[in-house]
């Protein structure tokens, strides 16, 4: 006598698009094409990427602050926050600094190279919750990249916000990102305040710490203004630590400040544990956290 056990086939059948609760959602990749590579600085490029299949493209949507896993088969896969407007359903833009393996090879990529996109993953900036008030959009260095999606949201919904200020700190003049957009932002009545760490003969603006400029912008504001204000802060941990501490002192509650944490996700789906802060998955509970949550994460800053 023998007993042959039944085989359970878990491979997805029929479904082109899997929900996050389906087995087929794991390793689901959109095939996308690099349609343009725009050199922003010596170290950063802006890649415009278009999902190849029409139906796939219509299916893909994201919220500002979310990230995708970008894959160049055989080279690697890494997380990048989407740096374009969520309302642009034709292509997405990723601002990528050449620092490692994948980004190094991407630096040599050409138009037409096909990449894989998984996602979008993670939490987003709750833009709707900020409607009707003021926003401080504060970026340090490459932090302007994840800020560009919320900035686009503000531009497209300008009447929903009162005062909007971008405070952007950069090391030096040649490292400024998205310079081609500055005039447009100003035209949309967004205050743009740039501060450089290092002076430059061609620079007449402020030089020094970002907190100094921030102080000038909000120092004279009264309590009712502060109460109506949300802040989005993106940049290196030391920067958002000082900025958030200062904003908190000025009276902005910690749950009204949002930061985006950078960690090295390998999966983006809460499995690999590489992005864990304390024991919180940055890819699931983040990358966007309100500052109260960050203060409660062990080893976040």
């Amino acid at each position: 006598m023998n007993h042959r056990l039944a085989f359970h086939d878990v491979a997805p059948h029929g479904h082109r698009y899997a929900r996050a609760s389906d087995l087929g959602s794991f390793e689901f990749t959109y095939k996308a094409e690099i349609t343009s590579i725009y050199r922003l600085t010596d170290a950063e490029n802006l890649y415009r990427i278009r999902i190849v299949n029409n139906e796939d493209r219509r299916h893909f949507s994201f919220r500002p602050g979310q990230f995708v896993m970008l894959e160049l088969p055989g080279v690697g896969e890494a997380p990048f926050s989407i740096s374009s407007s969520p309302s642009n359903r034709e292509d997405i833009e990723l601002c990528i600094r050449t620092v490692g393996n994948l980004t190094g090879v991407l630096g040599h990529a050409v138009r037409g190279t096909r990449v894989g996109i998984r996602g979008p993953f993670g939490t987003s900036f709750p833009m709707e919750r900020m409607h009707g008030g003021n926003i401080l959009l504060i970026a340090g260095g490459l932090g302007l990249a994840p800020l560009r999606a919320p900035i686009a949201h503000v531009q497209e919904h300008r009447s929903m916000f009162d005062h909007v200020d971008i405070i952007y700190g950069s090391k030096e003049l040649s490292k400024l990102l998205f310079t081609f957009q500055y005039e447009m932002w100003k035209k949309d009545d967004i205050g743009l305040h740039i501060v450089l760490e290092k002076g430059d003969p061609a620079w007449s603006g402020p030089v020094g710490m970002i907190t100094k400029v921030l102080e000038e912008i909000i120092g004279f504001r009264d309590v009712s203004f502060i109460r109506q204000t949300h802040a989005i802060v993106c940049g290196p941990p030391v920067m958002f630590k000082f900025v958030c501490a200062m904003l908190s002192e000025r009276g902005i509650p910690m749950h009204k400040m949002f930061v985006s944490l950078e960690r090295r996700m390998h999966c983006g789906m809460g499995k690999c544990c590489r992005c864990n802060v304390g024991s919180t998955y940055t890819c699931l509970k983040g990358p966007v956290f309100d500052y109260w949550s960050v203060m409660n994460l062990k080893e976040a800053i």
Binding site: F7, A11, P12, S21, F26, G270, K271
Partner: peptide
């Protein structure tokens, strides 16, 4: 709980878990 939960269950694991008596 992690690998076959509701958030991105892992088919590589599920295939084995469901087929190992």
């Amino acid at each position: 709980k992690v690998l076959m939960g509701s958030d991105h269950p892992v088919p590589y694991y599920a295939a084995k878990r469901k087929n190992i008596f």
